[in-house]
C-alpha cells in the first residue's frame, strides 16, 4: 500500500484514548490453537501472539512497519473466518486457529506459488541460510515447488557500486519500498505492472539503481527478507552450518530477534 496516511499512523500498540489505557490494565485474552494469549488494546493477532512467544508464519509483516497483508502466509481461522493475523486486531474471546494441518497446508501452497513465480535457486544464492523464504519452506516442510515454473525473464541490476538487485528473487513484500519511503525518505523503489507481471521499478530516468542516491547504509538496503537486494564486496562470508537458519528454525529466530530488539 502506498497510503501515506496509513504509513504515518501512530503505532497501533499505543493507547489512543484514556479509557483504553484503563482497559489495557485488565488482562484480555483470545485463544490461539486452544491456548490463551493476552493482548493490549489495538494489538493485532500477530503482534499479540509474537509478544506472547507464539509464532505465526509471515513474510511481509515487519514489527517496524504497519501491516501490509499481501503474502497471506499469516492467514488464520478466527471464529471460523479466514483473516490475516498481521492486519486483524485481537478481540476478547476470539478463537484463533493457526498451527493446523489445514492452514499449514495452504501456507505450503502459497510458498510454492512464490517459488514458481520467481527464479529461486537456493544453492547459488548468497542469502541461503539467512533467507526468510527458504527458512519458511523448511519450517513448513515444503518438499518441492509442486507447480509448473513460470520462468519469468527478469534481470539483475549491478549498476550501483555497493549494492546489487537480483529481480529474480523479489517476492513483492514491499519492505524496500516502505523502508525507502518511510524511513530513508528517498522513494527509491515502487511497484509497476499488474497481476503476474507486477515488478519492482527504480526511481531514476534509466531505471538503474546506480543512478539513484541509494546507499548501502539505507534501511531499504538492509531489510530484504530474501536475496533480492544484496551488498557487494561480501559473499558467502558465513560458513554453512553457522548461518542464522542452519541450526535454528525461523519460528524460533523470529521470536528471539523481536525479544532482542526490545
Amino acid at each position: 500500500m502506498t497510503n501515506e496516511s496509513v504509513a504515518k499512523a501512530p503505532k497501533s500498540t499505543a493507547p489512543s484514548a484514556p479509557g483504553e489505557a484503563l482497559q489495557a490494565r485488565e488482562t484480555r485474552l483470545f485463544s490461539l490453537d486452544g491456548k490463551p494469549v493476552a493482548f493490549t488494546s489495538g494489538q493485532t493477532i500477530l503482534e499479540a501472539a509474537t509478544a506472547a512467544g507464539r509464532y505465526i508464519p509471515h513474510l511481509c509483516a515487519h514489527p517496524d512497519f504497519p501491516p501490509h497483508s499481501s503474502c497471506k502466509l499469516c492467514v488464520v481461522k478466527a471464529n471460523g473466518r479466514y483473516l490475516s493475523a498481521c492486519s486483524t486486531r485481537a478481540r476478547e474471546g476470539l478463537e484463533v486457529e493457526s498451527n493446523t494441518p489445514e492452514l499449514n497446508g495452504r501456507r505450503r501452497t502459497l510458498l510454492q506459488m512464490i517459488f514458481v513465480e520467481g527464479n529461486h535457486y537456493c544453492p547459488g544464492c548468497e542469502k541461503s541460510g539467512f533467507c526468510d523464504l527458504q527458512a519458511l519452506a523448511y519450517q513448513l516442510e515444503m518438499q518441492n515447488p509442486h507447480f509448473s515454473h513460470f520462468w519469468p525473464d527478469r534481470t539483475v541490476d549491478a549498476s550501483h557500486p555497493d549494492v546489487f538487485i537480483d529481480f529474480n528473487r523479489c517476492i513483492f513484500c514491499e519492505l524496500c519500498v516502505r523502508a525507502s519511503r518511510d524511513v530513508d525518505g528517498k522513494h527509491i523503489f515502487a511497484l509497476t505492472g499488474r497481476g503476474i507481471k507486477k515488478h519492482l521499478c527504480i526511481n531514476s530516468r534509466t531505471g538503474k539503481l546506480g543512478d539513484t542516491d541509494f546507499s548501502a547504509a539505507d534501511r531499504a538496503a538492509n531489510i530484504c527478507p530474501v536475496g533480492a537486494i544484496l551488498k557487494k564486496h561480501v559473499g558467502f562470508s558465513t560458513p554453512i552450518g553457522k548461518r542464522t537458519y542452519d541450526a535454528t528454525p525461523i519460528s524460533v529466530v523470529s521470536l528471539a530477534s523481536l525479544e532482542a530488539s526490545k
Binding site: S70, M113, F150, K198
Partner: peptide
Amino acid sequence: AHESCGFCTPCRVGTSL
C-alpha cells in the same frame, strides 16, 4: 488473471496458475 492487481500471493499467482 488479466485483472488481478497482483497485490496478494494467492490471487496474483493463483489466477495465472
